[in-house]
Every structure is written in C-alpha cells, then in structure tokens.
C-alpha cells in the first residue's frame, strides 16, 4: 500500500497536498483498493463553491460499493477533475496523481494540523 510521505491524510481516507495555499485532494491507495474497480464519480460541488471541512466532495461508485469523499479543509473550489467523469478508473490506477478530485483555495491552513501525517495514517490503516 502506497502512503506518500509528503501528503496529509484524514481518517475517511482522503489525502491532501498544499502548495502555495492551494490544496489538491484525492483518495488514498487504501481507499481505492477497498472499493475495487471504480465505475463512476459524482461530484457534489462546482468550481467557485465555498466549502467547509467535512462537506461532501464526491461520491465514488464501484461495482458493489459507494463511498463518500469529504473535504479535509475549507475554502473555495478552484477546479474539479472532470477527466474522472469519463475515466474513473484513474482513481484505481493513479490515486495520488491523475486521480486527484479537486483543488481548493484553502481559507484556514491551521486545519491541516488536525490531519495525520503519512506514518500515522499508515499505522491507522494497518489496524483495519
């Protein structure tokens, strides 16, 4: 299971990477593996929406399961990854790169402190 060092994680299996105040958000390798083959991504937000941490970002459907993705941070939506609408399998093959879900202009960087680092998330997954 891949848990890149440089990312932050939350318990509901989202990762976030912040660069210059812009957060890129996706789901983890652990999440895509437990969902198995993703067949559909339904976004719950549009660009320019203001969102709070904990709000719904998208619902991801596989053959036998559905998972809700929630925002780890608050802010304004800059972009959603529309490529996933036609190629949802990117979530399985490239969860940390091509499978990113949304980019957010972070409004409160202190929220990042509540998230887990790679080691903590890895330990958390080992326990499940």
């Amino acid at each position: 299971m891949l848990v890149p060092e440089e990312l932050k994680y939350q318990k509901t299996d989202e990762w976030v990477k912040v660069e210059n105040g812009i957060a890129t958000i996706g789901i983890t390798d652990f999440a895509q593996d437990s969902l198995s083959d993703v067949v559909f991504v339904e976004f719950a937000i549009d660009p320019d929406d203001e969102v709070s941490a904990g709000d719904s970002l998208a619902t991801i459907e596989s053959v036998k399961a559905a998972a809700e993705v929630v925002f780890p941070v608050s802010g304004k939506i800059l972009e959603v990854n529309q490529v996933l609408t036609d190629t949802p399998e990117l979530l399985n093959s490239e969860p940390y790169t091509g499978g990113w879900l949304a980019k957010v202009q972070v409004s409160d960087e202190s929220e990042l402190d509540k998230l887990m680092d790679a080691a903590a998330y890895d330990a958390y997954c080992q326990d499940r």
Binding site: F40, T59, E61, K64, A65, A66
Partner: peptide, 13 residues
C-alpha cells in the same frame, strides 16, 4: 447493475 446507486449500498445517501 449500477447497484451502488441504491439504498442497500448508499443507505441514507
């Protein structure tokens, strides 16, 4: 097919 839309999987969603 597409059963992940349905109540037995999505429940309250």
């Amino acid at each position: 097919t597409l059963t992940a839309r349905e109540q037995h999987i999505r429940r309250e969603k």
